[in-house]
Design a protein around this nucleic acid. Structure first.
Lengths: 137, 137
DNA sequence: TTTGGTGACTTGCATTTTGCAAGTATCTAG
DNA sequence: CTAGATACTTGCAAAATGCAAGTCACCAAA
């Protein structure tokens, strides 16, 4: 929870953006959030297989950068749903630029479908519940 | 000089783009190249102060990714001018997306002027030459 | 009520990457 | 021959990464 120090390296918007997002995982987390994923588990199970400690760290960093907010959706144990702030959602344009570039210049790559997919978190949780019951019965 | 392994993590264009560009420095090098910088020294003297070993490493990686080409512009000692391939220039769109996002969401950041600035490398070299002469005289 | 399974994290630790400083090689000017 | 500059390279401490395992709370069947 350190306060953001502005102008870490220069005034350049690119440099400062990369100070926050310049690593292999942050933007993938944003991508998943943009696609409607909400819980830690959903984020952890993306095809790229982000290590769980990195995921926890990135969520913290993105939250302290004002890109992500976490709101508890249940108590005992407390569980958080992660969602993008407007600042975070605005990164959709950046992601889109990457998609366009990647599709055109990296052979075989593809755009994942955009837009939220799931319903609300409670519903998903209930579903998992039933899944458990079914498997057992 | 390892051969590129496609689909390192997934089919996702974003994931694969980040596999190449997902760090704090690569896109800054591309930015500078887009702004017309050509030589190692010019790149090394950006306001962000990239460590020179990182710069050397990034130039190698960007070259083996087909984003940058190096062509010798003098012999004895051989010196290289680094320029963007079409694949590299296409990253201008990505940079632009970062600039727009940064300007809107990171207070105090600014877009550096776009487009090439300098003349050809030989001219710059000659200029440096004269600069040296002047300082000495 | 013990045993097992799941979700959501956290911790340990070996490997890799970073970044600062210093070093090397080549050339020019004086 | 010395000083200064460009273009890198190397050494090494510190930080980040990634794999595996551990923890903690819950539920549910045996």
């Amino acid at each position: 929870m350190k306060t953001a120090t502005p102008f870490a390296r220069s005034l350049c918007a690119v440099a400062n953006s990369l100070e926050i997002l310049g690593d292999k995982w942050s933007l993938l987390v944003v991508r998943d959030l943009l696609h409607g994923k909400r819980t830690y588990g959903e984020l952890a199970h993306s095809p790229e297989g982000i290590p769980t400690n990195i995921l926890a760290d990135r969520l913290k960093r993105l939250e302290s950068a004002g890109i992500v907010t976490s709101t508890p959706y249940q108590k005992r144990p407390v569980r958080y749903a992660y969602t993008l702030t407007p600042k975070g959602s605005a990164l959709g344009e950046v992601l889109l630029a990457f998609v366009r570039w990647g599709k055109q210049h990296i052979p075989g790559t593809v755009a994942l479908n955009r837009g939220p997919v799931g319903g609300d978190v409670a519903a998903s949780a209930a579903k998992a519940h039933r899944r458990r019951a079914k498997r057992a019965g």
